[in-house]
Structures are given as structure tokens and as C-alpha cells.
Design a protein around this nucleic acid. Structure first.
Lengths: 217, 217
DNA sequence: GTCTATACTTGGATAGAC
DNA sequence: GTCTATCCAAGTATAGAC
């Protein structure tokens, strides 16, 4: 998202053609990360999927790693923008779990989390990649934290479970569930968990008498 | 763990020298996966770390992928053997969480989970690797399931939360926490979560009047 | 700005000497 | 059983034509 390429020339805008090419490359990078993983996301593989020449990656992004980071940026921006609207009305843990279920199902099916996972795992191999990836995961954690805090309102649970710590767990679980689901090509076990979580949050709400959306049993 | 190499010769045992070489390669593969990730775990990198020739990997294991699977086997066998003894006495959720904390800290510091994570993420790139890795993660899930079931005893929670589903979540969380901890080189947030979990399980035990190891607040 | 061609490096895998 | 030498494929990156 930040700096815009190595080249100079042209009136600052860079030209519509150039922007389109960059977009094609970023999209292809995302698709390649999802289908072939970090290892398979080579300049040649990405360029071929984009229907473009391999050299353009280096012209526009300087290196494959930079393109992959741009891909991660694109996914993060796109997803976080949607999340904001989705959780806007979630004022209880129960509602938040419902929204989280939707988010998770969407992200899982669209392969968005795969991009995160592959980039995190791949960062182990390229020294400078780690901090860059970490910086891009930060917003996800912050988003989760604020959503959790908002949903708790002034519940006493806030003192018992700091939102930041819970957010950390949620993001971790999110990543882990994607890995397992992706590994054996079965999303059902992960989705079962969200069903349990919904039941539990309703039960908990009933017990503490805070909010009570529906009768649990 | 299974079949023992491509070569024939010698009196079935394969020779002490051969076994030692295989062990060296497996150890080096583990270390390389931890330090350089799946991408950096090339035949040359592993062989160099082992102080051996690169060709030996293909002689003994047939391919790099097979060596990496052998490394995953070694880690799984080693860890699962320890786990069994550790959870033997955990008869309540509170005790299980305590043991789980120990297990997690040990595995995290020793880099054992890194091996799992890298192999799972790396499996996206090599078609046939996926099922093999999945088969090796299975025992971890089964171990978690049986430990959870044992710790629950005849608690009513059993009906509310099937042990198999919880085990799935625990393994996923385990993997996700490793990724995040590894990414920003800080294990503290993850360890905080276990502290919360311990407090919660004690609180829950007190509320349901089942077992009560210690006064929570 | 994009494409073709090419230099250079690294990696998987095999052959053959020891 | 291990090592040296080597082949070939694939990857990053750059130069120069269009």
C-alpha cells in the first residue's frame, strides 16, 4: 500500500496501464499463494497466472517478496474494510460470535486466511520478511480487540479477560483453524466450533443475566 | 518411521553407520525446518548442517520431502511419548490446563511446533505431501481428545462440548499461537493466555462445585 | 510500460569413484 | 555407505529491444 514502485517518469499518476498491471500481478500473487503456497509463489508462476511477463514483477515491485507483501496488504485492506461494517451492530458476545462465524466462513472459503498463513510461515525463510508480515497482522489483532471490547460493553468479564489477550487467542485460533481445515480439505470441524461457541455464549449470557437473545436449550 | 530406505545389502539391520547417518540427517532436517523454514530446508542446507554429503539424503530417503516427513515423525514420536506421562495424573480441567501450559512452553521453546507449522504450510506446495502430513497430525489430535475426555471425568460439560471438537480447537490454537509467537519473537502473550485459562478453569470448577483445587480470587 | 533474451544462482537428483 | 562430479530444472534479477 505504501510506496509506489521503483520507476520514475510520467506525471505522478503512473498511467492507467501501469496501475492495471500492478493490480493483475497482485491478484495473481494472491491466487498463487492460495493454490501453490509460499513455496510455489515464484515470479514465473505468478506472472504466468497473470498472463504477463515475469520481468514486470521486478519493474513494478523490485522483488517477489515485495509483491507478496503487496498481496498481503491488498487482502488485509479488503477484509478489514468489510469487517468494520459487519461488527458495527454486535453489542453482545453472542452477537459477536455470530458475526465472527460469518467472517470466518467467508474468509475460509475465499482463501484469505491462507494468504496470511503462508506469508507467516514463509517469513521464516526470508530474514527481513518477518517484521513486515508482523506489521500487517497487527491490524487484524487490533480489529479483533476492539470488536471484543465493544461487544463486552461494561460486562464484568472485561476485568477477568483483557480484550487484547482474548484477541490474540482469537487470531491464533483463526490461523490454526485455517491450517487444519486446509490440510484435510474439510471445513466442518472448524464450523462446528463456532456453533459450540454460539451456544456457550448464549448460555453464559443467560447465567449472568446480561443479555438474552434466545433461549439456549 | 515406516520403511527403511531404498538400498538393499547388509544383514537387514542396515549397519550402525547407516543408522547414525540417518539420525544425523533427521536431526539436521529438524533444525533446518526450525531455523530456515520449509523454504530453506533444501537438501544442500540440511546436508551442510549435518556435516554430510547432499547425495546421502537421496540414498537414504529418496527425496527431500521424505526426509522432512521422517523429521516430522521423529518430532511427533518424541513429543507424544512425553505427553502420555505428563497428562497421566490430570483428572480435572484445571490440572489439564496446568499440564498443557508446561507442554506448550516446552514445545514452543524447543521449536517442536515450528516443525509442524512449517510442514503444514509447506504441504500446500507439494501435492502429495498434504495427506502425509495430515496423517502425522492425527495422533496429536487424538492425544488431545483423550486427555480432555479423561480430565472431564463424568462432568456434565461432556455433553455440552464434545471432546473431539474441543481437541480440534486446542490443536488449532496450539499451531496459531506458535505462528504468532514465532513471528514477533515474543512468547509472553501466548503464555498469558494459559494463565487466564488456568484462572477460568478454577473459577468454573468452583461454580459447578465439581473439583476445587484452590480458591481463585 | 511491456516484452524477449539472457546471466547467474540455487536446488533436486543421478552416476560413478572410493 | 559415503563422497565427488555433474546434469538439468527452476528461480531471481537485469539489459535491451520494442
Amino acid at each position: 500500500m505504501a510506496k509506489s514502485g521503483t520507476a520514475s517518469s510520467v506525471s505522478e499518476k503512473g498511467g492507467a496501464r501501469s496501475t492495471e498491471t500492478r493490480r493483475l500481478l497482485v491478484d495473481a500473487a494472491i491466487a498463487t499463494l492460495q493454490r501453490e503456497g509460499f513455496v510455489g509463489a515464484s515470479a514465473r508462476a505468478i506472472a504466468e497466472r497473470a498472463g504477463l511477463n515475469q520481468g514486470l514483477i521486478f519493474y513494478h515491485f523490485g522483488s517477489v517478496a515485495n509483491l507478496l507483501l503487496a498481496a498481503l496488504d491488498a487482502v488485509s485492506d479488503e477484509r478489514l474494510a468489510h469487517y468494520g461494517a459487519m461488527v458495527a451492530g454486535a453489542d453482545s458476545p453472542g452477537e459477536l460470535v455470530e458475526v465472527a462465524t460469518d467472517i470466518f466462513r467467508t474468509d475460509l472459503d475465499a482463501g484469505y486466511i491462507t494468504v496470511l498463513v503462508e506469508m507467516i510461515a514463509g517469513a521464516s525463510s526470508t530474514p527481513d520478511l518477518g517484521p513486515e508480515v508482523a506489521a500487517r497482522i497487527g491490524p487484524w489483532r487490533e480489529f479483533a480487540r476492539s470488536a471484543i471490547e465493544q461487544s463486552l460493553g461494561d460486562s464484568p468479564l472485561k476485568a477477568l479477560l483483557p480484550a487484547a489477550d482474548v484477541a490474540y487467542a482469537v487470531v491464533a485460533l483463526y490461523l490454526g483453524l485455517e491450517m487444519l481445515s486446509h490440510l484435510d480439505g474439510n471445513r466442518q470441524p472448524a464450523l462446528n466450533l463456532f456453533a459450540h461457541a454460539q451456544r456457550l455464549s448464549q448460555l453464559l449470557a443467560a447465567m449472568s443475566g446480561t443479555s438474552l437473545p434466545e433461549a439456549p436449550l
